[in-house]
Write a protein that binds this DNA or RNA. Structure first.
Length: 264
DNA sequence: ATGACCTAACTTTTAGGA
């Protein structure tokens, strides 16, 4: 079972790339972030025609997340939004139980974690509060003792090895000690960083800014992650970054990251 | 030298992104 996370930076702009990726990679589950459209504007018929069922949590212009599962897999127990964020109107979390006849169930979440910049604005405490709500929910999900995959754009550079030039990010919300500590607190609940578990090398990046020739200079950072519960980690076969998509015309600034799990 | 993108929106300029 292949599970992909991808911040597409506008689903309308990226639909051709998404359809091409679905065809070439044939992932079983895709977690999308930054749809930048409302639910009714999501290109559901095109994605369904490609063989996928869809659950979205859209928002006009900003944010927006979705889950795609390849038929005949099905989604149930859909959750939109994290517990405790009733007053939070930003569309950043959608979760479902994914199951099939020959596949042990996996609970999958698509997460678009707040950026948090500028750090002296309310956006940074909002980021940390979101991460704390996520940690508490991640802990609660452990009680089910089933495979859980929390996938998305975390907007956190976990370690210096996850940036081409860590010094350039020293005072940025993506790399501040508080953001990194909150990410480690998620891991401390018992979750495994799938890509890092499979590949210890430096230079694994998932985002390159559009500006300043960052892609051409490989000035990247690793901020898109799949966190696996022990039951999911036991099934982990491989994880990889689909870097080639950043080189296409009109790319997203993020590329897909995929973890492969055994069927059961 | 200190710039260099991209996207959506009540678009000719701004806000947000990272």
């Amino acid at each position: 079972m292949r599970i992909t996370t991808w911040n597409v930076n506008s689903i309308k702009q990226r639909l051709p790339h998404l359809l091409g990726f679905l065809e070439e990679a044939r992932p079983d589950v895709v977690c999308l972030q930054e749809l930048k459209c409302q639910d009714e504007a999501f290109p559901g018929s095109e994605v369904e025609a490609a063989g996928y069922a869809v659950e979205t949590l859209g928002q006009k212009a900003y944010n927006g997340v979705a889950l795609l599962v390849r038929k005949p897999l099905v989604m149930s127990e859909i959750r939109r939004g994290l517990p405790g964020d009733a007053e939070d109107v930003q569309a950043r979390y959608v979760e479902a139980l994914v199951s099939g006849a020959e596949t042990a169930p996996v609970r999958v979440a698509s997460i678009y974690l707040p950026n948090g910049n500028p750090v002296d604005s309310p956006k940074y405490p909002y980021k940390l509060a979101f991460m704390e709500r996520l940690r508490l929910h991640a802990r609660a999900l452990m009680a089910d003792e089933i495979a859980v995959v929390l996938a998305g754009d975390y907007n956190v550079i976990p370690e210096p090895a996850d940036a081409a030039d860590p010094e350039a990010w020293r005072s940025d919300a993506l790399f501040l000690p508080g953001s990194r500590a909150a990410f480690r607190a998620l891991l401390a609940e018992g979750y495994t960083d799938a890509l890092r578990a499979c590949d210890p090398r430096d230079g694994l990046y998932t985002f390159w800014d559009y500006q300043a020739g960052c892609w051409q200079r490989n000035f990247g950072i690793r901020i898109d992650h799949l966190l696996l519960s022990p039951q999911a980690s036991d099934r982990l076969v491989s994880a990889s970054v689909q870097k080639h998509l950043r080189g296409l015309d009109k790319p997203s600034d993020h590329v897909p990251v995929t973890a492969e799990l055994t069927a059961g």
